[in-house]
Computed example of a mutant assay.
Amino acid sequence: MSTWSTTLHFEHLPVASSDTLPTLSLIDLSDWSLVTLVGDDKKSYLQGQVTCDVVTLDPAHSTFGAHCDAKGKMRTIFRIFNHQQGYALLQRKSIMATQLPELKKYAVFSKVDIEEGQDVLLGLCGENAQTVIDQHFPGSDDVRAFEGGTAVKIDAQRWLIAVAADHADTLATQLANNAQLATTSLWDLYDIKAAFPRIEAATELEFIPQAMNLHAVGGISFKKGCYVGQETVARAKYRGTNKRAMYQLQGASEQCPQAGEVLERSVGENWRKGGTVIAGYQFSDNQAITLVVLPNDLDEGTQFRLAEHPEALWTVQALPYSLDDE
């Protein structure tokens, strides 16, 4: 049972690598959090902190973005959208304790309040998700405000719902009709299949935005003004200094790959550190799928294995987007 619901039971939903995902599932996003920003200076303050263009963000849409340190290494990757007279940044809960104080560091000089949001976060997924969303939150926008919260389109089969705790149980019970209830691991699978980047505590301050394909999913503006880490991000684009990219790999595994684990690559007859796991999902048939940051100049036919499980080889899968997209 969730910590906020007295009636709904969210459990791990076993999925085999060959299975079709449920037509409708409701997910308790317990591993995610919101950062909320309200106040007169919220837009200008955030514009000077993050990689995406907050000034031109249409209230009807959301976008990826990153918050970097001065060297251009990412503290977090988030999805930003308009929420409750301000902005909300959806990001992994594991980095909140270290990233949020850094985002707030200079807020004392601006009219902006930055806090960890208290909303309950739900995911509605599957081919029937859009129909259910339209029934409960009429409209055509990708970001839809409703009493007590906001619904945000993530991709063709997913919506995020951020709802105040006192509305959550009632709304979730309505949305759960004909839906399979699942834990956040199912959302991980959708994210990995979509090759959406994320930062966990284990990968914080390890990579510049392009190393996780943030430019390919619309998370970097190269036309906006200055922000923290901009010099490094711009140099990676215009001088070609970035030597990494994020790839999707699949292989046999008896355990779920964890963020920060090492993936080795074959070099002749030897094995060397090849990359870092960003996110992983283990299927019920002892297959797993993962996102890994690797060198972007790998030779064709390079083999991979997890350092902790060297007996199983992994293969690179085709990304659902082009790394040339900006």
Rank of each mutant, 00 (worst) to 15 (best):
T20D: 12
F207K: 07
L89G: 03
G268R: 01
T170C: 15
D119F: 01
S5I: 02
V120P: 04
T36A: 01
D299N: 13
D134K: 01
D40Y: 07
V143I: 01
A312R: 09
Q135D: 03
G86P: 02
C68Y: 04
V152G: 06
D155P: 06
F78D: 03
H136Q: 15
G240R: 06
A151I: 00
V120R: 01
Y321I: 05
V54T: 05
L186W: 00
I220T: 02
W159D: 00
H136P: 06
G149R: 00
Q287M: 12
S62Y: 01
G275V: 11
G280E: 06
E254P: 15
L90C: 10
Q174V: 12
V267I: 08
P59G: 05
V228W: 03
A129Y: 04
E269G: 11
K105D: 12
K273W: 12
V293E: 13
Q303Y: 08
G260L: 04
T173G: 13
G280R: 00
E115W: 07
D41E: 08
E127K: 15
K73Q: 13
E326Q: 15
A236S: 02
I289S: 11
P138R: 06
I114C: 07
Q84R: 13
L249Q: 07
E11R: 11
M96W: 11
G149L: 02
P59E: 02
V120C: 08
K224E: 08
S266V: 09
F10A: 05
E204A: 10
H83P: 06
A179N: 04
R305D: 12
L319D: 13
R239G: 08
S2L: 01
I208C: 10
H309K: 14
A318T: 13
D166W: 04
A168N: 05
H67Y: 05
Q84Y: 12
A195H: 03
A176W: 00
P101F: 04
G48H: 09
Q47N: 14
V15W: 03
D58P: 06
P257Y: 05
V267K: 10
N213K: 00
G218H: 04
N178T: 12
T170I: 08
T131E: 15
L124I: 08
W271M: 06
D285F: 09
R92W: 03
T170L: 14
H167R: 14
A165M: 10
V277F: 13
L319V: 07
K273A: 13
Q303H: 11
G275L: 07
T131K: 14
P310I: 00
E200G: 10
T232K: 02
V54L: 09
A182Y: 02
G139M: 00
H61S: 14
D69H: 04
T173C: 10
L89S: 08
K105M: 10
S33M: 11
A66R: 02
Q91G: 15
